[in-house]
Nucleic acid binder design. Structure first.
Length: 455
RNA sequence: GUGUCUGUAGCUUAGGUGGUUAAAGCACUCGCCUGUGGCGCGAGAGAUCACCGGUUCGAGUCCGGUCAGACACCCCA
């Protein structure tokens, strides 16, 4: 049989991995700089932890794990006949995590006694979704999350804005848009147009404005049960364009009677003020009232980052959630806010825009090539000194043809090769070859480390 | 869950309207060159044409099905 990959999963070869690690390292460095501490949680969670947190669609997309042993043994014929949905609780009680936020909330609730609030954690692990794969969408992908729980302070929202900017700049993605909105504004709009509690449906529909246009959005709203008067009242919504400050003014004047909306507007204003006080220059912030995001648990700020010039979904998203821990039975109100970076999409964006720095795929710096046994006696101490100087170096393990060994260096894109034949052994002057320029010169072994480091 | 497209060497692909031993580039192995790669020249190895069935004297090519993948919708990082 010939092996295949599970649909929607990938192998990452050395070249890809060094690029991926560049992304992970960059994001981790920012998270640490902002005072977040690392956390890992298991790949598997109880389905009772996961189900019901992501909406019906999300429940559908959860990978469920069959119980060990004779998982169907206790099923009665009538339970079998009732269909897969009905028997699910009997045959599967675990599932793969769908995101990092819900496991984090579960962790916070379970470890509440040991945590000092506000608690800031970062987490970089794979998540799984039983989605149909397509461009920029995988069934297994990594998220890098940073969340704060235990404070309502809008400083946290401001810090997310700052972190997004820092990460994007350090990755080299200069051309991006950080879209922000506030769930309270959406909720306020729903109240204002006399469709209270329907902000979910409202959000899903207007989120598509960019894609399908105003008319189709209105059609969809009708289908979702919005009355004509509600839809008429909603029309000013589509004029909410312009600079962030302009939109804020328009919203204020439009939603005068909605206290909820005004609170959402005030939150955005305060967040912006804090970002300004920090000193972030030219923030790439856009208030987008149509930004909704599917996840049902957001209650305040909503974030989404899009790379411009690439047709791929958002590369990062997040927001504030007030009630996630209460789903696990805590009476204490713990508000959280966080951001999630999608490593795999960031990779695709950087690859497409050619943004990986030259050294991102760089492995071995020096290949030591002995022509014969005696060359090893010189090569091994050299290897030790190079490594001691922090230079990635390897010795070609076999005594084979020079061509073959140089081909190896080319294949691994090793920039320097040290050739050691009988002449070099005798004189102590080793041949150092720059594989990019082809230049070759002789020098003593202890000069090589400095020569290589000089480039 | 719905739809569209695509499956030919390790990779990328060529193979109008069916017709003998399925073609090329890259990669690989060997040689030109027993101490020098990326360029060149020569040779070699490598394919049950995704799978199963049908039409036909004859199928990589046409038809049906299966499987796999990509893309789009829904939704999402």
């Amino acid at each position: 049989m010939k092996p295949t990959l599970v649909k929607g999963t990938r192998d990452f070869g050395p070249e890809q991995m060094s690029k991926r690690l560049f992304i992970f390292d960059t994001i981790r460095a920012t998270f640490k700089r902002f005072g977040f501490l690392p956390l890992e949680t298991p790949s598997m969670e109880n389905l009772s932890t996961l189900m019901g947190k992501y909406g019906d669609e999300g429940d559908q997309l959860l990978f469920k794990i069959l119980n060990s042993g004779d998982f169907a043994g206790s099923l009665a014929p009538e339970q079998l006949a009732a269909g897969s949905k009905a028997m699910l609780p009997k045959i599967a009680e675990k599932g793969l995590r769908y995101d990092l936020t819900v496991p984090f909330a579960r962790y916070v609730v379970m470890s509440r006694h040991a945590l000092t609030l506000p608690f800031k954690r970062y987490q970089m692990q794979p998540v799984w979704r039983a989605d149909r794969p397509q461009k920029g969408r995988y069934r297994e992908f990594y998220q890098c999350d940073a969340d704060v729980v235990g404070t309502d302070s809008l400083l946290c929202e401001a810090e997310i804005v700052l972190m997004v900017h820092e990460v994007m700049r350090n990755l080299g993605i200069e051309n991006f848009a950080l879209k922000v909105n506030n769930r309270k504004i959406l909720t306020g709009i729903a109240e204002f147009i006399d469709a209270p509690g329907m902000e979910g449906a409202l959000a899903v529909a207007i989120d598509k404005l960019d894609k399908i246009g105003q008319d189709k959005v209105l059609d969809e709203l009708r289908e979702r049960g919005f009355s004509d008067s509600s839809i008429t009242a909603l029309l000013p919504m589509f004029t909410m364009q312009g600079s962030t400050n302009e939109v804020l003014e328009k919203l204020k004047n439009w939603l005068t009677t909605s206290e909820t909306a005004q609170r959402g507007i005030a939150e955005i204003e305060e967040m912006l003020a804090l970002v300004g006080q920090y000193g972030l220059e030219n923030p790439k912030l856009e208030l987008d009232v149509t930004l909704a995001r599917g996840l049902s648990y957001y209650t305040g700020a909503i974030f989404e980052v899009k790379a411009l010039g690439v047709s791929i979904g958002s590369i990062s998203g997040g927001g504030r959630y007030d009630n996630l821990t209460s789903a696990f039975g805590t009476s204490e109100r713990l508000s959280g806010v966080g951001i999630s970076f999608g490593v795999d999409r960031i990779y695709d964006v950087m690859e497409e825009l050619n943004l990986f720095p030259e050294g991102a795929g760089q492995g071995t710096q020096v290949l030591v090539v002995p022509f014969e046994e005696s060359g090893r006696h010189v090569g091994l101490p050299l290897l030790a000194s190079l490594r001691g100087a922090g230079i990635a170096a390897e010795l070609y393990p076999d005594l084979s043809k020079v061509k073959k060994m140089l081909d190896y260096a080319n294949a691994k894109r090793i920039p320097f090769v040290v050739l050691i034949g009988s002449e070099e052994v005798q004189t102590g002057q080793l041949a150092v070859k720059n594989m990019v320029t082809g230049e070759q010169q002789k020098m003593s072994a202890d000069a090589i480390a400095a020569f290589v480091q000089a480039g």
